[in-house]
Design a protein around this nucleic acid. Sequence first.
DNA 1: TTGCGGATTAGACTCATTCTAACTGATTGA
DNA 2: TCAATCAGTTAGAATGAGTCTAATCCGCAA
Lengths: 148, 148
Amino acid sequence: MIQSLTHLDREHLQEALNRSGQKVTTQRETVFSVLLSERDHPTVDEVFNRAREAMPGLSLATVYNCLETFVSCGLVRQVNHERESTRYCPNLAPHAHFRDKETGRVHDIELPPEVIKSLRSILPPGFDSEVIEISFLGRAQGKESTSN
Amino acid sequence: MIQSLTHLDREHLQEALNRSGQKVTTQRETVFSVLLSERDHPTVDEVFNRAREAMPGLSLATVYNCLETFVSCGLVRQVNHERESTRYCPNLAPHAHFRDKETGRVHDIELPPEVIKSLRSILPPGFDSEVIEISFLGRAQGKESTSN
DNA sequence: TTGCGGATTAGACTCATTCTAACTGATTGA
DNA sequence: TCAATCAGTTAGAATGAGTCTAATCCGCAA
């Protein structure tokens, strides 16, 4: 079930869109609330299906557009695993991803600053990186939480 | 220009294929030597084009098959970046990848064991990972080497 | 109220990858 | 020696995530 946006989330959305000169639309609100309602790193298709419950006329292209918009204005992160469909994640804190081999589920793993620092330190001189992607593949026992 | 396999490399190939019950073929030798000749993380298409210089009849499907075979018997690693074409890398030592935003070139970054350890240590209890993928995105100045 | 520009839409298109089914060629064993 | 077998190869078709296109929609400002 999609929860509608809290006042705070709506503000967050509006602020980020305005900052990059884009508008708040009901489609964007709907897609954004899908991402916030169940933080399980859905694919475009999953977002599409969930969003249509609230907004039956919504088109797949729009979901692609909305998600791309969110990524470009820094509201949401893309998560890629091998060549599987791209997944989307509204957690902006620095974190790695853990992909459960068995369930396919993706968990967020908090990334302490000192680990980020030690990673940056392995870069030879002259290499300057803005983005570091870290993903684990393995098994997660117990833990039914979908994490975020 | 594709160099033909050294005696050692040919043995390496044979050993790995035999271990998983598969055969050495001239196609596999050709594709393997393409990977070793220029360690620049080529895409399937690049491998295909280079390999055809030495073996004009070679088909794309075979290149896919060979590379898949090498991956499955642990001779070669796949490198994925966002949703771009998969690249292939015959460096089996633990390493991260650095993708140059400007040139698109991929460099290998050595991964010291203590960094791997510190990464593993951020996993909560119950999470067990076999594979860790680390990729940097940024700019590499100077350094014309294609690294491996 | 009209016009403008951004957003949305359906459907066509792309292109990496996978699948399929036929063929090849080496090996086995009768 | 010949046929059977079987892994590997091949061309081309199929798949499917994602992108593009061109038409339409909608909200706002003149």
